[in-house]
Amino acid sequence: MKIKILRQTLPNTEPYWEGFDVDVNKDMTIAGVLDHINYNDDIIDDTGKKTSRIRWECSCLQGMCGSCAMVINGIPALACETMIRDLKGKEITIRPLQKFPVIYDLVVDRSIIYENLKKINMFIGEYIPVENKKPKKREKELEHQYEVAKCLKCGLCLEVCPNYVNGNNFFGALFANDCYLVSSRNQSKLTEIIQGYEEHFGKTCSKAFSCMDVCPMHIPTLASMAKMNRYY
């Protein structure tokens, strides 16, 4: 199968497409394909030219760490979870996330995510949960907190979002979810967090909800938003 990859040698050099002919089977993931290309003494592209190994970030290789976020056939996804059997067409295109600076090939710098969370004091500090007398409601709340705390900070929700540009002002779904997590676990921060939420999320989000489609953890961002809106 033809695999086309948008490559870049250094942060300040021009990106270019390079093709590879790879023997794939339907049970392989894109991570498996990248490994397969790289696991050779000589890496040969589809013109027969010797080329360099493809650089990509990986850690857990099983959808738990968010390292390998990239854009596969136009859709932001984790390489280690994207199966060949689920992809359509005769060729696969892979490019780095566009909304973050490229370091090289498929590796991007996502530091801005953390810089933004720091800007609005996104931490729980003291545990003073919003009181919930009814056990059922309490249980639901905990369940939602659990879901939200699974966020990988992989940036897929930002990549797909029509409102997120470069993180200068609008901070995106992962931020909205953390706003919920912090305010539900520490009431005393409610006012501060709501302000940040409104400024960096609420007033700009156009509710496309594509973030929920691509989230590898299936975090129900809509529910976080509903809860935040109730806190207003």
């Binding site: 970030e57 850690s59 857990c60 099983q62 738990m64 760490c65 968010g66 900070k153 992989c154």
Partner: peptide
């Protein structure tokens, strides 16, 4: 090198 979300501990 990378954020804690990438560490083995999350596994």
């Amino acid at each position: 090198p990378y954020p804690s979300e990438r560490s083995q501990s999350v596994m």
